[in-house]
């Protein structure tokens, strides 16, 4: 009988892990709390840095999962030595577990000073992906925005909200969306307010430069301190242009908060297992960051994707392959 491996989470990392395991003759079971596989990519429009539709990546992965057992609308509560415990209390026995439960989006309402959920024209990058998917990007009252501001690092690198880490992918997300909006509204002025610009991936820096030179996106170094609504429902923002050393203010039609990646909500419960450790950020800490960066201290628990740290799609996919190979080696031994 082939060995059974539980894959927690059906995002890109979980899908890739399961597809690779199945190819190795192992029996994977994906347990996904949502009603469909795909994770966050179900909500993304086009992916940086190539503007590939997110759906294309998911279709490719889905095709490789034809014979894989999938349980949707099922949430894993705890991880035991013998398998996983579901929310309804059932224990599913398995020979190994790969944790691919991903990350959570930082809730922008928490940064009250930016008025998300209070002012009509304050959005998050997640809202913009949805609006792009729906083909309806406009201000709350249906107008074409003339001036748009993006704010980097919302819910990242911020002690005030207990998120000290950098979410890595949000700088490039902000650049990507600025380019997409400029393409939709060539007459608009777009400003990205940043603290540091972090372009870690292949082609990202080139894309940043293209956004500056060809798309005329303005980058202003300085963190918006607060936003307020004007009588005509526009948003007035204040910042310091720290490269000049003077305060700066402007009114925009849309303020878009570039929200960060937060540790997944399940991580704390998973860490009740003694083989699973957490970073101070509550992302899961692998056994070590080099040769065992997808392994736990418990022999039969492995990790792939953003459950251990903010990552892009390519990195998450690679870890899926790597984790599956390590599982296979573990099962042989």
């Amino acid at each position: 009988m082939s060995k059974r491996v539980i894959v927690i989470g059906g995002g890109v990392a979980g899908m890739q892990t399961a597809a690779t395991l199945a190819g190795l003759g192992i029996h994977p079971v994906i347990i996904e709390k949502g009603d469909r596989l795909g994770g966050k990519l179900l909500n993304w429009h086009k992916l940086f840095p190539t503007f590939t539709p997110a759906g294309e990546v998911l279709d490719t992965l889905r095709r490789q999962l034809k014979d894989v057992e999938i349980m949707t609308n099922t949430e894993v509560k705890r991880i035991e030595q013998s398998g996983v415990v579901l929310n309804d209390g059932r224990l599913l026995v398995s020979d190994a577990v790969v944790v691919c439960s991903g990350f959570d989006i930082f809730r922008a309402e928490i940064k009250e000073e930016y008025g998300y959920g209070i002012y009509d024209n304050v959005y998050t990058t997640v809202d913009i992906e949805r609006m792009l998917n729906e083909g309806k990007v406009h201000t709350a009252d249906g107008h074409i925005p003339e001036r748009i501001a993006f704010l980097h690092c919302v819910g990242s690198r911020d002690e005030k909200v207990g998120q000290k880490h950098c979410s890595r992918v949000c700088c490039i997300t902000g650049v990507k969306q600025a380019m997409e909006l400029k393409e939709l509204f060539p007459q608009s002025e777009i400003y990205n307010f940043y603290m540091d610009i972090r372009m870690f991936g292949p082609g990202y820096e080139e894309m940043y430069r293209q956004a500056q030179e060809e798309f005329n996106i303005h980058f202003i170094r300085g963190r918006i301190s607060e936003a307020s609504e004007t009588i005509d429902k526009r948003v007035q923002i204040k910042a310091e242009d720290t490269l000049i050393g003077r305060p700066l203010k402007m009114t925009v039609d849309m303020l878009i908060l570039i929200v960060g990646m937060k540790a997944g909500a399940s991580n704390d419960r998973f860490a009740e297992n003694r083989g699973i450790e957490l970073y101070p950020s509550h992302f899961i800490r692998p056994r070590n960051q080099f040769v065992d960066n997808i392994c736990s201290s418990a022999g039969n628990i492995f990790y792939a994707g953003t459950v251990t740290a903010p990552k892009n799609v390519g990195e998450s996919l690679n870890e899926g392959v790597a984790a599956a190979l390590r599982v296979s080696k573990y099962l042989e031994d």
Binding site: Q212, E213, N216, I217, H218, D241, R246, P247, L248, K249
Partner: peptide, 26 residues
């Protein structure tokens, strides 16, 4: 007031400069 007021500033010249030399934006 010390603040740079981007609502009042006339951005036309700056836009023209950037159109002529987009590389400055990089």
């Amino acid at each position: 007031p010390r603040a740079i007021n981007m609502d009042k500033n006339d951005m036309m010249i700056s836009q023209k400069i950037l159109r002529t030399m987009p590389e400055l934006q990089t």
